[in-house]
Design a protein around this nucleic acid. Sequence first.
DNA 1: TAAGGTTCCTAACGTTCGTTAGCAAGCAGA
DNA 2: TCTGCTTGCTAACGAACGTTAGGAACCTTA
Lengths: 196, 196
Amino acid sequence: MEATAPTLSRKAQIDQTATALFRTRGFAATSMRELAEALGLEAGSLYSHIKSKQELLHRICFRLADDFFAGFAAATHDAAEPAAVQLRRAIESHVRVLTQDVAASAVFLHEWRHLSEPARTEFLALRERYEAGFRLLIQRGIEQNDLRTPDVAFATLTLLASLNWLPSWYKPDGKLPPSEIAHRLADQLLLGLANS
Amino acid sequence: MEATAPTLSRKAQIDQTATALFRTRGFAATSMRELAEALGLEAGSLYSHIKSKQELLHRICFRLADDFFAGFAAATHDAAEPAAVQLRRAIESHVRVLTQDVAASAVFLHEWRHLSEPARTEFLALRERYEAGFRLLIQRGIEQNDLRTPDVAFATLTLLASLNWLPSWYKPDGKLPPSEIAHRLADQLLLGLANS
DNA sequence: TAAGGTTCCTAACGTTCGTTAGCAAGCAGA
DNA sequence: TCTGCTTGCTAACGAACGTTAGGAACCTTA
């Protein structure tokens, strides 16, 4: 049946289909029977591969979190670089992660609230830590006289907001390639921050 | 019809509590029994005042849509004004509507997908029409040489994205008053677009 | 051949869901 | 007074929910 999916494990297939359904219908509104039907099997059969519905959401959210952190670390690896340059790299990395798996990104951004404790609290802590990374870059960019803004926290929120809206409209088969989107977004956002 | 306080107030009370619950738990994850309990009554009693759960979501979403359109119309009422000025007014109006009822705004922004047809399609059409209004303002601002951007549609999406993230972090009792938030947002976004 | 893991099935469990029916208390205007 | 509207109750409906148990094919490896 699967000619295009070579050796994707059953578990990975379930993750992928669940991600797509969680994105379009939402986590709470997606039933295990819907998920099973989309995979061509019965609801009970899912539990040979996964422990619970919650586990699916957990894996999706925390895998994305890992990706974002890894990308940010790579983007800011060279401490000798100006903060403004690091910020541009971080923005491009963020967009790359978003566009690499739009469905998972949308779930990451909108369905995390359905994580049960303590995962939910842990998730929010990671999110805050990630935002703090961007905040620090902007702060250092200001100190290095490359950026300007009356309110660093405010600017950080606005910047990430602009980026995070992307999964709402991005189509993988659109005419703009992800790299070009990243470039334009960084331009538009940084030229609003850049001095002179 | 009636201006009598008890009738409207009970229904408005249900709307308000439902809005708060839909915001924090999500529409699909909020049960009528939860809603009833939050109001201090039994689930069945709700149906003396409303027709269905769906009706609650419908009313929340379309009331906000009305508010946004009314605000936009007022902001762009004076056709003699430069488009850049109208855009600033429209941004401030948008922020005003968002902050006036943060909970309803969050539902408007995130739960509309649970609207059943044909309301969902109608809602998306309204949303597109609203975005088109902003797009036109930016377009005219460019023609009047007050704004610049390589991609009008792109800039519009980014602008609205920045604004619409506001309900995620805005606290009505925060130290920044809504008008100041609107001002700063407009500044940060427009100085990124403004020429020279 | 035997063993063990992977995969999926049917059937059912207890719970919760949105909603309805029927009824009753309270209050308003006639 | 009667009438009718508002508000709320209890009880229950059928449907859908996440999940489990137990069994049976299949594939691989030895």
